[in-house]
């Protein structure tokens, strides 16, 4: 437990955190048309969590975000493998992606691509790996 008083740091990070996470989600979803994608989005989300780690200690952050990052990495891998192996079910070459327009009531007509799911896998793996590295080094005495 920290003994020093970090009111300014903790308060500003509480506010900043949402903006950083929002921006990382924006970067992730915009990846197909603008610079960005799963890798940089994941890194930025991990960066937000690292800011939390700087403001608080590892135990508190683990309480706020009860995520096992190794499992998250594996889930990301399964996502990526699943979307690429899904092509096998439709008898097209491995990693062939599907694309289509879907009308969703609120959002209207949006184009969906299974490559996004693949990218979501990349996103999870990047967050998982970065946080595993930082946590294991941080916990190491």
């Amino acid at each position: 437990m920290r003994t020093t008083n970090n009111v300014i740091l903790q308060t500003s990070i509480k506010i900043l955190l949402f903006f950083i996470v929002l921006y990382s989600v924006y970067i992730f979803t915009a990846g197909h048309y603008y610079p960005g994608g799963g890798f940089i989005g994941g890194l930025m989300t991990a960066g937000a969590i690292v800011l939390l780690l700087i403001a608080y200690d590892i135990k508190t952050v683990a309480k706020i975000l009860p995520v096992n990052y190794r499992i998250l990495t594996a889930v990301g891998l399964i996502f990526a493998i699943g979307t690429s192996a899904g092509a096998l079910l439709f008898n097209v070459p491995f990693l062939t992606h599907a694309f289509g327009h879907v009308v969703i009531p609120v959002l209207g007509d949006i184009s969906l691509h299974t490559a996004t799911l693949f990218d979501l896998g990349v996103y999870f793996v990047v967050v998982g790996v970065t946080m595993t590295i930082i946590q294991t080094i941080g916990e190491d005495e």
Partner: peptide, 24 residues
């Protein structure tokens, strides 16, 4: 289509990912 030749890569990859869940 000839997805057979990707399977020797895909099967161990999927297995490796699944095995992470069962580490203990």
């Amino acid at each position: 289509m000839n997805n057979l030749i990707v399977l020797p890569i895909l099967i161990p990859l999927l297995t490796g990912a699944i095995l992470i869940f069962f580490s203990k």
